[in-house]
């Protein structure tokens, strides 16, 4: 992949995070294949795809969180604020976790320590990274809780996680992730387990923090509605590879990859109840040989051509920072969405 074939906003700013050819294997199983992209400060990028497509693995590989005894991570280059990051997960700059990056996991209940008050768990960030004494750290914790809009935050810092609802726990995780004003927030399905009204609150909160702190956000989701409403850019993953990337409006309104089109057509659209919900037939492939000598999506693809079963498509760079990995993208583009 050449240097031009990257997902990057047209903005002239230097990327905050730059990833080239990131791959993850578990033993002999290839799970993530040569992913390349840039994240710009102050932008929200959505990583979209089905379960098992490698979205979370990609995020965790960047953060250096994968268990090295299980996963082998490789690539050609990865930089954060211009500084090289190793693929083995070991060589992360001091304070990388917490100060430079924040990570919000999907399941808020398992990410909090049930035996420790919520305030202490947030305060720990300030004690460990800022060397604060416990008292002032708790004061900061209360300020953070207030910032993520927990009512009566000063009193709630003494509560334990079980006294918080799911949405409130998710806010606590966000408070911890952004406590030290990181440059990058990685949020893995942060709203999937929540009610829609709480989801809207959390998304607005993340968006506010992004604006205030000029933080880059990488949000992992499978909900195109969320993507359309919040993200600046979208990367679509299928079977471990990026298959399309570009600006949100371009992708949602005139996606060029049949899988992107299929994902959007399968959404029950509240604004268009007459539009049939069209399923993508079949199942995602198993990882063993998914991209070996053919396109991994072709068994499910309605635009399939003979070539698709004979060789694997390369990523093509189009105008406006758009990318697509499909031999037939011109036909897809011309078909009505």
């Amino acid at each position: 992949m050449t240097a031009q074939e990257i997902i990057s906003a047209a903005a002239p700013t230097a990327p905050l995070l730059s990833v080239r050819d990131l791959s993850v294997r578990a033993g002999a199983l290839p799970l993530v294949h040569e992913i390349s992209f840039d994240l710009e400060p102050g932008t929200m990028t959505a990583l979209v795809g089905e379960s098992g497509s490698g979205k979370s693995l990609t995020a965790q590989a960047i953060l250096g969180l994968l268990n090295r005894e299980v996963y082998a991570v490789a690539g050609t280059a990865m930089t954060f604020q211009g500084q090289a990051l190793g693929f083995d997960g070991q060589s992360r700059p001091r304070g990388f976790h917490g100060e430079l990056t924040g990570y919000v996991m999907q399941d808020p209940s398992s990410a909090l320590d049930p035996t420790m008050t919520v305030g202490r768990q947030i305060a720990e960030m300030f004690v460990v990274h800022r060397g604060m004494d416990r008292r002032s750290a708790l004061g900061e914790a209360a300020r953070m809780l207030d910032r993520v809009r927990i009512p009566d935050a000063g009193a709630r810092i003494d509560d334990y996680p079980h006294q918080f609802s799911g949405g409130m726990k998710q806010r606590v995780l966000i408070a911890m992730a952004v406590a030290l004003s990181p440059r990058l927030l990685v949020a893995d399905e942060p709203t999937t387990a929540l009610d829609v009204t709480v989801q809207a609150d959390i998304l607005a909160l993340i968006d506010d923090l992004r604006r205030e702190m000029q933080m880059a956000v990488l949000i992992i989701t499978h909900d195109f509605g969320v993507v359309y409403q919040c993200a600046d850019r979208v990367m679509v993953m299928y079977a471990g590879k990026l298959v399309e990337g570009g600006a949100t409006l371009q992708i949602t309104e005139s996606g060029r990859h049949p899988y992107t089109r299929g994902l959007i057509a399968s959404i029950p659209d509240l604004d268009d109840l007459d539009r049939p919900v069209v399923a993508i037939p079949g199942q995602p492939p198993r990882p063993e040989r998914s991209w070996d000598g053919s396109c991994a999506f072709q068994p499910r693809c309605s635009f399939k051509a003979p070539r698709c079963a004979a060789e694997a498509p390369e990523m093509e760079t189009l105008g406006g920072g758009a990318l697509v990995r499909c031999f037939e993208w011109r036909r897809v583009e011309e078909s009505p969405s």
Binding site: R149, V196, T197, Q199, A200, D201, L203, A204, D207, D208, D223, F224, G225, V226, Y228, Q229, C230, T248, L249, T252, I264, I267, D269, L270, D271
Partner: peptide
Amino acid sequence: AALIAASPRLKHRGALLEHARRRL
């Protein structure tokens, strides 16, 4: 109406966040 407004849709980009901000 609040449940409908909070549903992420593929129309009126940004309306979801605006609505949440107004409510909050």
